[in-house]
Write a protein that binds this DNA or RNA. Sequence first.
DNA 1: GTCTGTGAATGGGTTCACAGCT
DNA 2: AGCTGTGAACCCATTCACAGAC
Lengths: 254, 254
Amino acid sequence: MATGRTHRPATRSRGIPEATVARLPLYLRALTALSERSVPTVSSEELAAAAGVNSAKLRKDFSYLGSYGTRGVGYDVEYLVYQISRELGLTQDWPVVIVGIGNLGAALANYGGFASRGFRVAALIDADPAMAGRPVAGIPVQHTDELEAIIRDNGVSIGVIATPAGAAQQVCDRLVAAGVTSILNFAPTVLSVPDGVDVRKVDLSIELQILAFHEQRKAGEEAAAGTAAVPAATREQSATDQGPDGDVPAVMPA
Amino acid sequence: MATGRTHRPATRSRGIPEATVARLPLYLRALTALSERSVPTVSSEELAAAAGVNSAKLRKDFSYLGSYGTRGVGYDVEYLVYQISRELGLTQDWPVVIVGIGNLGAALANYGGFASRGFRVAALIDADPAMAGRPVAGIPVQHTDELEAIIRDNGVSIGVIATPAGAAQQVCDRLVAAGVTSILNFAPTVLSVPDGVDVRKVDLSIELQILAFHEQRKAGEEAAAGTAAVPAATREQSATDQGPDGDVPAVMPA
DNA sequence: GTCTGTGAATGGGTTCACAGCT
DNA sequence: AGCTGTGAACCCATTCACAGAC
């Protein structure tokens, strides 16, 4: 779209590196913001700053998708938005179910970022009969008994688990048995799944513990450096590369 | 504690790899579960399975902390729990503030995983005057105006941002100015912070987009492989190595 | 015999630096 | 002259495989 590029993807080889995949949503967000401001083109330097990465990495990442830029000029914003969306599979509609409608489940149901990027909350499911029928974010909560039917009827392939830890594996098993092949797990447990099913986890307390580690380190160094060697420097773009596994999240086909 | 080990940390060199740090909380969780079941020792193989990693990685990780195992036997559970806790800085109390008490903020406030691991919610802060005084998770919400005073009075160094994207940078600036040096950001924005401040981000929609990418890939391959080449295999431990930044989350001193 | 701790080998990802297109 | 695209170098992380401690 936009400037009619005549490129064919060329090296449409298999395999975009996992680390690159994990950054595509970041680029997409930055590009969407530019698009809304009607900015027509952007350089790797500018876009990298907006996404919080360095420009060499960004160019390398884009090189895996194809040659979508123009030397001496930069990237066409609209065109890139389209290419990345397509690559991520966001040009199609993904119905998702959220299981476990506590505070977190409700937060997820209300989260605008889903709907805006091709994800549609097909159903909210909770084990508590008292929740049944009650609407959350305009969607009525259904009972766990309906889980299998909901998955099948809506062709759901992505499930979100926001239950307590104790229930997570059981819910996971049922989701998988019913046909779900991608799971986003917020429960603090290691889920086991069959081959071919992807699991990504988000764990709030783990993130805090990692911060605590660095925080402790800072405190130690400060003490070691005499009294007040506050390094507090000038405001700059933070890199915070938490990538795969916190780290580079390599979602692997289990 | 437990079996009096006489080791000195020996190679107590600087620098545990970031990828290792990101896994320590995982090991700690698995160990805590074993501890509750009063299991005295555990082999690298068993513990690795419980944490969802392979045993070579686990042993290498532990080797960075020191030689805390016993060849031919395994690791003393209690002793390891203590060592990892200490390494992560969880033997001290970390007061945290949560800013933005919507559904997500409330979910975080109610999340048990915090309190159980040395984190104490020192205050909940929201910009909406209507929220002020209302208790969430037993803690009264305070108005944003109080932010600086709360940080200073409680010696808070870790802040959690659960506000809408638009408010996040501003909140971040105020937190940093007031003395916070570690931030966990749930708002879908890139935050810029001065050197010396760590930021980790958790982005729900990014995780879903990564899943969608793999989901799309699966669908494509399935189609390519004729009709129904469902690989669905036997239930096994899922690796799902999402490490740094989704990837290996390298929290870097910005 | 068992299981840890770790050098060596391998593999991915990031960064550098520049050739090549506009 | 400017900015992309990419080989090459570098660095970090994972995996292998075994020596060494129990």
